[in-house]
């Protein structure tokens, strides 16, 4: 059974690659700067966020733009990855109705191509760390952990959303609202300490995306993310769980997709 699964995956690897390529190519087609936007866009929004919020929250912190950029980059991958995965089944309805292809290829390719764009945009972060003198040390290697967790979480949530949105299209609008809530509780453009003072620090403990961003910041700033193991264990559990639930849910309902698109 598993062997057969791996065989079909091998057979459709080329399709997966083509779909990832398509996502990246079409995203910036017909814009003059093309793929350069993957770098420009986070750079410009970070400038705006620093201008707006830096004066409030980051007065004493010379490296505040790096702080914002790390949060924003990770959040925007999560947001676009889940959104595109959610819409992937409907977007490829034409193909699904005509040819047999393992359906998980569609949400998977959506998450993957957004991950590639995200990976390219990390170059901006590299530049920012040099400009703002956040120098790397050995802990930087641990950045790989939150990145893997982020990918898993996005894939898992994306699979859950893609299954549910086939049956209830309202979810596309609901998710936008939910994402807003997630964004404001991710501490992208403010320091957690200011929130902690008001006694609302528990909110962050419920947000796996914040935990991932926190771990990533620790790595970038050269600190150990394991100082309080909660911040590594919690997102690990949630991410793995989301993938398990996502795959199970998708598998259970995928044969009915065609009757609803």
């Amino acid at each position: 059974m598993l062997e057969k699964q791996i065989d079909t995956f091998k057979k459709y690897r080329f399709l997966l690659r083509e779909l990832v390529k398509k996502g990246i190519k079409l995203k910036y087609r017909r814009s003059y700067l093309g793929i350069l936007w993957t770098l420009l866009e986070p750079l410009l929004t970070t400038c705006v966020l620093t201008l707006v919020f830096g004066t409030f929250f980051g007065k004493d912190d010379k490296t505040f733009p790096v702080y914002i950029l790390t949060g924003r980059l990770l959040y925007s991958f999560f947001s676009s990855g889940t959104k595109f995965a959610m819409k992937s089944i409907r977007q490829h309805a034409g193909m699904i109705k005509k040819v047999y292809v393992p359906k998980y290829i569609y949400p998977l390719s959506s998450v993957l191509y957004n991950f590639v764009i995200f990976a390219i945009s990390l170059i901006v972060l590299l530049g920012a760390t040099i400009v703002f003198k956040v120098y790397p040390n050995v802990w930087c290697i641990t950045a790989i952990i939150p990145l893997v967790l982020l990918f898993l979480l996005t894939l898992g949530v994306g699979m859950i959303l893609s299954t549910m949105s086939v049956f209830f299209r309202d979810l596309e609008y609901l998710w936008d609202v939910a994402l807003m809530l997630i964004m404001y509780t991710c501490a992208i453009f403010y320091k957690v300490d200011t929130m902690a003072k008001t006694g609302h620090a528990w909110i962050f403990k419920l947000n796996p995306l914040y935990a991932i961003i926190k771990c990533f910041r620790d790595a970038v700033y050269g600190n150990s993310m394991f100082a309080d193991p909660f911040w590594v264990i919690m997102p690990t559990v949630v991410s793995v769980l989301s993938v398990i639930v996502g795959v199970a849910l998708f598998k259970k309902h995928q044969d009915n997709f065609i009757l609803h698109i």
């Binding site: 459709y12 080329f14 398509k22 087609r29 034409g94 193909m95 005509k98 040819v99 292809v101």
Partner: peptide, 26 residues
């Protein structure tokens, strides 16, 4: 069946050859 259902309209012919071939499992 209904040829060309897997085409992407923004893609060029050449790009679609690769895309559709991949859909068919080549």
């Amino acid at each position: 069946l209904e040829l060309g259902a897997g085409f992407d309209s923004q893609y060029t012919g050449a790009e679609n050859i690769y895309l559709y071939s991949a859909v068919l499992g080549y």
